[in-house]
């Protein structure tokens, strides 16, 4: 079972040096424990481009598809046996990256 752990941010500056160190150490522990699938940090929402190709001609729009105070700053994908395991990992992740996170199961 895989879970997406989204990192929710309100600040536009990226993680501090201490946060990066803590995240790296946490990631190594996750890998060692066999829960690692993938993870990544994202650039600021202002760097986003929205594409709509439903009409046959691709339209490009500058900026995120919706402006919000909170935005997705990065994510983990964990392999976990059940939600309890995923929640424990996500709680650790929230502590080390110093941000709120949201857990959602993959279908």
């Amino acid at each position: 079972m895989q879970y997406l752990v989204s990192v929710i941010d309100e600040r536009s500056n990226s993680a501090t040096q201490e946060e990066m160190t803590a995240i790296r150490a946490f990631n190594e522990r996750v890998q060692a424990a066999g829960h690692w699938v993938f993870a990544g940090g994202l650039a600021d929402p202002s760097t986003a481009t929205v594409i709509d190709n439903r009409g046959g001609e691709a339209l490009f729009t500058d900026g995120p598809f919706v402006e919000t105070k909170e935005f997705l700053a990065g994510f983990w994908v964990f392999e976990a046996a059940d939600l309890d395991v995923a929640l424990t990992l996500a709680a650790e992740g929230s502590k080390h990256c110093n941000r709120k996170v949201e857990v959602r199961p993959f279908l």
């Binding site: 079972m1 046996a81 059940d82 939600l83 309890d84 857990v103 959602r104 199961p105 279908l107």
Partner: peptide
């Protein structure tokens, strides 16, 4: 069902 909330007694720590 979808998030797989387990059917179990939690561990001693929890």
């Amino acid at each position: 069902r979808a998030a797989r909330i387990p059917y179990r007694v939690p561990s001693t720590a929890d």
